[in-house]
Measured scan of single mutants.
Amino acid sequence: TEYKLVVVGAGGVGKSALTIQLIQNHFVDEYDPTIEDSYRKQVVIDGETCLLDILDTAGQEEYSAMRDQYMRTGEGFLCVFAINNTKSFEDIHQYREQIKRVKDSDDVPMVLVGNKCDLAARTVESRQAQDLARSYGIPYIETSAKTRQGVEDAFYTLVREIRQH
């Protein structure tokens, strides 16, 4: 089974770092803004072998026109913010609204991801993020692309959301 996953969120929150940590098991430290990259990885989730087709997208506003296209083809979405960047957390709402509009559905598989949880300088409390996820009816997972904490959990949870859909 193949799953088309799309990673969305503001610029600099760590979308590529999360994806590369999942696929290649290493942490990319330097920031190089993405336009669009796709990665494929075969994994076993709950005993089922599946192929993850992951689209890593641009957070930069100037590429926002490309969003409709990949939102149409994606089956599930990782909505990523950084726990030390309140603005990126506030941006999640717009991504969710755009996904709902493009998919013409209120019920699209999504996982809210709070990345950079290895950093002490948190400005978005776990509780705020949990409340937001609960209001959307989606899971919330904290990750660190640096330490790998929660990385597999985030992507695998999204696959489970798609399966249950």
Rank of each mutant, 00 (worst) to 15 (best):
1 T>P: 09
1 T>D: 07
2 E>W: 02
3 Y>H: 15
3 Y>M: 06
7 V>A: 05
8 V>N: 01
8 V>I: 08
9 G>L: 00
9 G>H: 01
11 G>A: 13
11 G>R: 15
12 G>A: 12
13 V>T: 14
16 S>N: 00
17 A>H: 02
18 L>Q: 04
19 T>V: 11
19 T>G: 07
20 I>W: 08
25 N>H: 12
27 F>C: 03
27 F>H: 04
31 Y>N: 02
31 Y>M: 07
31 Y>D: 02
32 D>A: 03
32 D>N: 03
32 D>L: 03
34 T>A: 00
35 I>Y: 05
35 I>D: 01
39 Y>R: 00
41 K>Y: 11
45 I>Q: 05
45 I>R: 05
46 D>R: 10
49 T>W: 07
50 C>R: 05
51 L>T: 14
54 I>L: 09
55 L>I: 12
56 D>I: 00
56 D>L: 01
58 A>V: 03
61 E>I: 15
62 E>M: 15
67 R>Y: 14
68 D>F: 05
70 Y>R: 06
70 Y>I: 15
71 M>T: 11
72 R>F: 09
72 R>K: 09
74 G>Q: 10
75 E>C: 11
77 F>H: 03
77 F>V: 07
79 C>V: 14
79 C>R: 01
80 V>I: 11
82 A>C: 13
85 N>A: 06
86 T>M: 12
87 K>L: 10
88 S>P: 04
90 E>F: 09
91 D>G: 10
91 D>I: 12
92 I>Q: 04
94 Q>I: 09
96 R>F: 14
98 Q>D: 13
98 Q>I: 15
99 I>R: 03
100 K>M: 07
102 V>S: 08
104 D>V: 09
105 S>V: 11
105 S>C: 11
107 D>F: 13
108 V>P: 09
110 M>Y: 01
110 M>A: 02
112 L>I: 12
113 V>F: 01
113 V>I: 13
114 G>E: 03
115 N>V: 12
115 N>S: 14
116 K>L: 15
117 C>P: 02
118 D>G: 04
119 L>W: 13
120 A>H: 08
121 A>Y: 05
121 A>V: 08
121 A>M: 09
122 R>F: 11
123 T>S: 12
127 R>G: 08
127 R>S: 11
129 A>L: 13
134 R>C: 06
137 G>N: 10
138 I>Y: 06
141 I>Y: 07
141 I>P: 01
142 E>S: 04
145 A>L: 03
145 A>D: 00
145 A>M: 04
147 T>C: 12
148 R>S: 11
148 R>L: 14
149 Q>N: 09
149 Q>R: 09
150 G>S: 12
151 V>L: 13
152 E>Q: 08
152 E>F: 15
152 E>N: 09
152 E>H: 07
153 D>G: 05
153 D>H: 08
154 A>C: 09
155 F>E: 00
156 Y>W: 11
157 T>H: 11
158 L>I: 15
162 I>T: 06
162 I>Y: 04
162 I>N: 03
163 R>N: 10
163 R>S: 10
163 R>E: 09
165 H>K: 14
